[in-house]
Amino acid sequence: MIDVESVTVRFGDHLALREVQCTVADGEFVCLVGRNGSGKTTLLRLLAGLSEPTTGRVRVAGQAATSLAARAVRGFAQAEPPLYDYLTVREQLSFVCRLYGVPLASALERLARTVLADRHDALVRELSLGMRKQLGLVAATLHDPALVLMDEPANALDATAVTTLRESVRHWHAQQRTVVLCTHDLSWADDLADRLLVLQHGRLAHDVRLAGETVTAALRRLGATDALTRPEPTTAEPAS
């Protein structure tokens, strides 16, 4: 599903990623961890086709990650969803549905399982961060992608929303979808992850196939528990 070939990303004099190389098979559940600034979000953006490497190549489902073909099989739930502030919730979903050729009714059915069930006419700019993240997750996965990328998906969600999200992730894994999850909360990964990737200073320091070992246990064994940090603080309104 994913091929990352000798990828380096440079921003001016800063190397965000250094010769990263890995492959991820169909149906694998990968937990991606690393300290803030280690390159996690940069790697996710490459996989999502939102940026290109300085050198190297990234392919998704055999296609260039930036191609339309790759977009059709991939969904990216970002830490801060790219939404249009002056659209309503319904209008935002309608726009995304047109992009993917998905009926709006299907998107609204998914929305009904979230705290936004009765907020179709609310402006996106009026939503808390937790609500925006739930809307962003629905928008990112309404086309049932074979690959789901998630960057700190539970940050700012309330307990009910976290439970719903966990159930969705567990369902995707059972359907043999490929999942790449970047998170500081290892309870997600310990339940489901097949694979652990640890980034340190832009390099892929560890690539572990877990084979029954939990992510937490693997990090302790590797002496890499310092790779874990909480997500950057936000000034956004907390989820309701």
Rank of each mutant, 00 (worst) to 15 (best):
D3G: 04
V4N: 02
V4M: 03
S6T: 04
V7Q: 07
V7C: 09
T8G: 04
T8E: 03
G12K: 11
H14L: 14
H14Q: 13
A16D: 07
L17V: 04
R18P: 00
Q21K: 09
C22L: 15
A25W: 00
D26W: 11
G27Y: 07
V30L: 11
V30T: 06
L32V: 07
G34C: 01
R35A: 05
N36A: 09
G37V: 06
G37E: 01
K40M: 09
L46F: 07
A48E: 04
L50Q: 12
S51F: 00
E52C: 06
P53R: 13
P53A: 03
G56H: 06
R59W: 05
A61W: 01
G62H: 05
A64Q: 10
A65T: 05
S67G: 11
A69G: 12
A70D: 08
A72N: 00
A72I: 00
R74F: 02
G75S: 06
A77T: 05
A77Y: 04
A77G: 08
A77F: 03
Q78E: 14
P81R: 09
P82C: 02
P82A: 07
Y84F: 14
Y84S: 10
D85S: 15
Y86S: 05
Y86W: 12
E91D: 13
E91V: 06
E91L: 04
Q92E: 14
L93F: 06
S94C: 04
F95R: 09
V96Y: 12
R98P: 01
R98E: 10
L99D: 04
Y100G: 00
Y100E: 00
E109D: 15
L111C: 08
R113F: 02
L116G: 02
L116S: 04
A117F: 03
D118S: 10
D118F: 09
D118R: 15
H120R: 14
A122I: 01
V124R: 14
E126M: 12
S128P: 11
L129Y: 15
K133A: 11
Q134D: 05
Q134V: 13
L135S: 09
G136I: 10
L137I: 11
V138K: 14
L142A: 08
H143C: 12
P145R: 03
A146S: 12
A146E: 14
L147H: 01
L149R: 01
A154N: 01
D158C: 03
A159V: 12
A161K: 01
V162I: 15
L165H: 07
V169R: 06
W172C: 05
Q176H: 10
R177W: 02
V179Y: 00
V179L: 13
V180I: 13
D185A: 14
D185V: 06
L186C: 03
L186K: 02
L186G: 01
A193W: 04
L197D: 01
V198E: 01
V198I: 02
L199P: 15
G202D: 13
A205C: 01
R209M: 10
R209S: 11
E213M: 12
E213K: 13
T214E: 09
V215R: 07
A218M: 05
L219A: 08
R220M: 06
L222M: 11
L222A: 15
A224W: 07
A224Q: 08
T225V: 13
D226K: 03
L228P: 10
L228T: 05
R230E: 08
P233C: 09
T234Y: 11
T234C: 10
T235M: 14
A236M: 13
A239L: 15
A239M: 13
S240Y: 07
